[in-house]
Design a binder for these strands. Structure first.
Length: 421
RNA sequence: GGACCGGUGGCUGAGUGGUUGAAAGCGCUCCCCUGCUAAGGGAGUAUACGUCAAAAGCGUAUCGAGGGUUCGAAUCCCUCCCGGUCCGCCA
């Protein structure tokens, strides 16, 4: 969440930056400030009374020890106690409201973030590779059906729409991609591979900013105490929730393969052909926890690591930057990597590489002690590894030949074991 | 799931209602002494928030978490969480 001190000190700047998001969040700032003021006023008054109670209570102790009468002071202190309680109630009401508001206010877009209203305004930064020359690219659904590798009927039988079953070579191909990605990021790029629970506590979801704002998009269990992870970013980043790191521990680099579960409420019909948008999909994630001074450089590095996977596979892609109106709730700066899907005739987002600044770190109390012994909030970065279904779409559609044979990229062959599918 | 025992500062560990934010030891930091493969002496050693232009200072809170009792709680009561051990169950 945003630092209340920053809001307090630069309310106009905060409002101006939030206004670029076009989501109404800037309007909440005045109420936050009002709560903050009430809270602090009450706290100061309360502390003065507590101080009085403390010293007077000690007097009582002395009087009693000497066998003297203390009933007069006792009623006095009791009154102070009641006043304290009243102030406390009012103060904590303001504090609660303040937190509630802050949890619903998004991160400030970084100051070099391109200003724009929506995704139409996202600039394309670069592209890599060439669109494969194909007279008529077949859709991944055609290819998958022909080869019998992905079944939506099976998925529907088990779980309904939005679920798929990968069979035979399809299951194996996806597994090969996962291992390829984990080895690339783990062994070559120096990330620690972790295997984490997929069912996680509410506080984890709040830590990384999925809750309370996006509760409807999550699968919950048991009175919404637990949630199915919508992305590995949640459990992986929360590994360090409420911890104090040493400066030399940074950066922490983690990679994980997990399934991701999303309700995708309200997104029916949008980009959802085939396996492009699923309720459950696999992903290989990258997370770095870094010293704030390095976070922008790390974002570039992280994006490079995600790009490296596509380059090794020889898949054509482009990198765009999200403008202020499109950048995610917790993110202050985001690059999206979009891979070319000829069967769809468009680019598909496979990786979203974001810097969250200290926004998540504040929510989850993730700090480090610097060389001067001061505690600071870390910056968290999440270079979304790669969404497997979309990668699979791109691979099938880009690597097909005129006969519908899919030529497995060389880098993947050791994992898949065949040259064609 | 059941039973019992625990959860105190970086660590070990005192402390069962009144100057205890917390003894002692260890560790760590700084200083002093000492010419030698070591020892001794001294000082310091949590975090958050509030107050302040800021630092210092001051104040408040924090002894797993949250409630309660009380003039006053690490200490008593309730709920929950976590750990250990034993039993049951189990991929």
């Amino acid at each position: 969440m945003l630092d209340i001190k920053v809001i307090r000190d630069n309310p106009d700047l905060v409002k101006e930056r939030l206004a670029h998001r076009h989501d109404g969040s800037a309007d909440l700032i005045d109420e936050v400030l009002a709560c903050d003021e009430t809270r602090r006023k009450n706290e100061t008054a309360k502390q003065a009374l507590q101080s009085e109670r403390k010293s007077t209570s000690k007097e009582i102790g002395k009087l009693r020890a000497n066998g003297e009468d203390s009933s007069g002071i006792e009623t006095e202190v009791k009154k102070i106690g009641e006043q304290i309680k009243a102030l406390d109630d009012e103060g904590s009401k303001a504090a609660k409201r303040q937190t509630e508001l802050l949890l619903n206010i998004p991160n400030l877009p970084y100051d070099d973030c391109p200003v724009g209203a929506d995704e139409e305004a996202n600039p394309i930064l670069r592209s890599w590779g060439e669109k494969p020359a194909l007279i008529e690219a077949r859709d991944h659904l055609d290819l998958a059906e022909d080869k019998g590798i992905i079944s939506f009927d099976d998925g529907a039988r088990l779980s309904g729409s939005g679920f798929a079953v990968y069979r035979g070579e399809g299951a194996r191909l996806q597994r090969a991609l996962i291992q390829f990605l984990l080895d690339l990021q783990g062994r070559e790029n120096g990330y620690e591979e972790v295997n984490v629970p997929h069912i996680i506590k509410r506080e984890c979801m709040e830590g990384t900013g999925q809750l309370p704002k996006f509760e409807d998009d999550m699968y919950g269990t048991e009175n919404n105490e637990f949630f199915l992870a919508p992305t590995a970013e949640v459990p992986v980043t929360n590994l360090y929730r409420d911890t104090l790191l040493a400066e030399e521990d940074l950066p922490i680099k983690l990679t994980a393969h997990t399934p991701c579960f999303r309700r995708e409420a309200g997104s029916a019909g949008r980009d959802n052909r085939g396996i492009i948008r699923m309720h459950q999909f696999d992903k290989v994630e990258l997370v770095q926890i870094v010293d704030p001074s390095t976070s922008m450089a790390v974002l570039e590095e992280l994006t490079g690591h995600a790009e490296a996977a596509l380059q090794k596979l020889g898949l054509h892609y482009q990198v765009i930057e999200l403008c202020t109106g499109d950048v995610g709730f917790s993110s202050c700066k985001t690059y999206d990597i979009e891979v070319w899907a000829p069967g769809q005739g468009k680019y598909l987002e496979v990786s979203s590489c974001s810097c969250f600044g200290d926004y998540q770190a504040r929510r989850m109390k993730l700090r480090y002690k610097d060389a001067d012994g001061r505690n600071n909030f870390c910056h968290t970065l999440n270079g979304s590894g790669t969404a497997l279904p979309r990668l699979l779409v791109a691979l099938l559609e880009q690597c097909q030949d005129a006969e519908g044979i899919v030529h497995i990229p060389e880098a993947l062959q050791p994992y898949y074991g065949e040259a064609t599918l």
